[in-house]
């Protein structure tokens, strides 16, 4: 194939993907970053503003307080997913891969089910369950003589974010489970047999043979969790509203962006400040993913069996 022909073939195969990706992903991203460098004037054209929007967002207290609050909350949101969702997903995957387990497919489907439901439905169901008036959770705790543990979890500043995070964990625990389960299935049976002949019991086989082999998958799950958590918005919006109450205690980057960009109640929408928040979200996620790629993934080895 000569050079000109090769270029044409290359273009033929790559162009559709490049085109779609550029229109729907690259262009909006670049446009957002550009918007964050401008200032909008009521009824007038936008003017170039340099990095002043960022200075305002991080330096002016009316902006920086909500921003850091949302950032802190978002970190906690992520931490809860990392410490609860992923270990539980790992444990469930390990249980699912037990050779003697029966009804494996039933469990797998049931645990994965919430992931497929709409976030709005999840939020609504849990609001009903946790309702202080007639929620089933209150009755359950009461029946167990644990009624003193009950509180209006979603309405208290100290508990709202943790509660919402745990609901999100409940919804998405199926994803780490499925990914890790697949990785466990890829480990050849003979390797487990070899470990058995070497005298390892099932726990030891898991910790010394299987776990080291699935670290790359756990790393991948962690990055996915990070990206999804810092892009999260819908569950908070569905359960706590755009104001992410009570008193912004469940406010995360996504909800902050929503209020800034589209406006809410007494706040007017501000596209350029919204773009600034969105750019910050992009930068945070990029830094996180970079840290993973350059510091963690390089030290991990993938194993082909």
């Amino acid at each position: 194939m000569d050079r000109g022909n090769f270029a044409r073939v290359l273009a033929f195969f790559l162009l559709p993907a490049v085109l779609i990706y550029s229109i729907f992903s690259i262009y909006p991203l670049i446009a957002t970053i550009f918007d964050s460098l401008y200032q909008r004037h009521e009824g007038g054209p936008m003017t170039f503003n340099g990095l002043n929007n960022f200075r305002t967002l991080l330096g002016d207290e009316t902006w920086s307080k909500p921003f850091w609050n949302a950032f802190r909350n978002n970190c906690l949101f992520f931490l809860i997913h990392m410490c609860v969702q992923n270990p539980i997903g790992l444990a469930l995957a390990a249980l699912l891969s037990l050779p003697r387990l029966r009804l494996r497919n039933v469990y797998r489907t049931l645990i994965f089910m919430p992931t497929m439901l709409s976030v709005v439905i999840i939020g609504f169901i849990w609001q009903l369950i946790l309702s202080p008036l007639w929620g089933i959770w209150k009755m359950l705790l009461g029946a167990l003589h644990l009624g003193f543990l009950f509180g209006p979890y979603l309405g208290q500043e100290g508990t709202a974010l943790i509660t919402v995070s745990l609901i999100s964990v409940w919804q998405f625990v199926g994803i780490p489970m499925i990914l890790i389960y697949t990785a466990l299935l890829a480990i050849p049976d003979e390797l487990v047999d070899a470990a058995t002949v070497d005298g390892l019991n099932q726990w030891q086989t898991f910790f010394y043979v299987k776990l080291p082999l699935i670290w790359p998958t756990i790393g991948l799950v962690s990055v996915l969790t990070f990206v999804n958590n810092f892009n999260a918005f819908d569950l908070i919006y569905a359960m706590q509203g755009a104001l992410a109450g009570p008193n912004f205690s469940t406010d995360i980057m996504g909800t902050l962006f929503y209020r800034t960009f589209f406006g809410n109640q007494l706040q007017l929408g501000d596209p350029t400040m919204g773009a600034t928040v969105a750019t910050m979200m992009f930068l945070i996620i990029m830094v996180g993913v970079m840290i993973y790629l350059f510091l963690i993934q390089r030290r991990m080895q993938r194993y082909a069996f």
Binding site: P188, E190, L191, D193, A194, A195, T196, V197, D198, G199, L200, Y208, V209, P212, L213, Q301, Y303, A304, F305
Partner: peptide
């Protein structure tokens, strides 16, 4: 159990632990 039978097995796919070096593979049991 297999480990108490005083047997050693060589598998078709060798079943070496991919994350350990040769020395550790041999001494693992």
């Amino acid at each position: 159990p297999p480990a108490k039978r005083e047997i050693a097995m060589v598998f078709q796919s060798y079943a070496l632990y991919p994350h350990m070096n040769v020395e550790k593979n041999m001494g693992f049991g």
